[in-house]
């Protein structure tokens, strides 16, 4: 299947945030190595969206298949954040769950999940919610079989709702500045608790509370990428090689890590207070930092790197 301008994709020039799911996949993996499962010609579309008078997508907003990355075989799934906010519907979720289950048979070097999702697709809410639970169970099975599951987060829909829980189940995560990770989105918090709790129109607040830099500094993500496909590729290859095991020791370490985070930062109101306590000299400058300057800060923060997942 020829994808979006497949021949002309330059991974160094392509913005992860702006790219479509197909462009990300094509540019992320070794050229020509991607083989799609349940591609658009099979028309596995949502049986439910027509009831809501909503248009469907031939791939239901997720591209899945196999490919090589730096010469090693992987399975991968890429959500399309522009279709229905990348949300989990029945077919969309079934494709991800099927891919994860297939990993147990195929034993690839890793499974990559290119998150770009607002969470559950409300028009198919029960199917989406259940698929998220199935995906988390499948990820645990895949990790326990010794296969790393690496999440890449930097799309325009972010990684919200159940997507945030799936991300928290992965072996490793790479994020870019635009890669927000959270359970309740800003609008959801504001709608339920009021603008004084969370002003969703304050974009700077959104980025520093849920964005990639905050998650990286506090150990919620394991690599920080510039907003290019090439940067995500480099991060993915590196993270595959240092993925932690899934076992009791790892979860005990995560329990201690998360308890320590509450003890140390539980009274912080804003991310800048968290960063100051992490030893960042001038926290107000963090959002404006380029990747190199930010990496230098990360290297001095003890919380950022760990195997407690």
């Amino acid at each position: 299947m020829a994808g979006d301008r497949a021949a002309s994709i330059d991974p160094d020039a392509l913005s992860w945030y702006e790219a479509t799911a197909r462009q990300r996949v094509t540019a992320l993996v070794d050229p020509g190595s991607f083989r799609e499962f349940l591609g658009p010609t099979e028309r596995r579309m949502s049986p439910h969206l027509p009831l809501f008078d909503l248009p469907r997508a031939f791939d239901d907003g997720i591209v899945i298949g196999r490919a090589d990355i730096a010469g090693t075989p992987v399975l991968l799934a890429a959500q399309e954040g522009r279709f229905m906010g990348g949300a989990f519907g029945e077919v969309h979720g079934g494709k991800l769950v099927g891919l994860l289950r297939a990993a147990l048979d195929l034993k690839p070097r890793a499974v990559l999940i290119l998150f770009d999702t607002g969470g559950v697709r409300l028009q198919e809410a029960n199917a989406g919610e259940t698929a998220i639970a199935e995906a988390m169970r499948a990820i645990v099975d895949v990790r326990a079989a010794g296969i790393p599951v690496v999440g890449l987060i930097g799309g325009r829909a972010g990684c919200y709702g159940g997507g945030g829980l799936i991300a928290g189940t992965c072996s490793r995560l790479a994020v870019s500045e635009g890669g927000r990770i959270s359970v309740s989105g800003p609008e959801v918090i504001e709608t339920n608790k009021g603008a004084e709790e969370f002003d969703s129109r304050d974009r700077a607040l959104v980025w520093r509370t849920m964005g990639g830099k905050h998650r990286r500094l506090t150990g919620g993500a394991d690599a920080f990428c510039a907003d290019t496909v090439a940067a995500f590729r480099q991060a993915a290859v590196a993270l595959i090689d240092r993925a932690p095991a899934f076992d009791l020791a790892g979860l005990e370490a995560e329990q201690a890590r998360l308890a320590a985070r509450i003890a140390r930062f539980g009274d912080c109101r804003d991310a800048t207070e968290v960063w100051a306590r992490l030893g960042v000299n001038d926290p107000a400058t963090v959002p404006g930092m380029d990747t190199a300057a930010f990496e230098a800060i990360v290297a001095r923060v003890g919380e950022a790197d760990h195997d407690a997942r």
Binding site: M136, R137, G164, V188, I189, T218, G220, L251
Partner: peptide
């Protein structure tokens, strides 16, 4: 649903609980 829970990484805490059960 709160700013503080999300600031501190609620997704990691909920996923951790699910992982413990799994």
């Amino acid at each position: 649903m709160s700013r503080r829970d999300e600031l501190l990484g609620l997704n990691e805490y909920l996923a951790h609980l699910a992982k413990a059960l799994l």
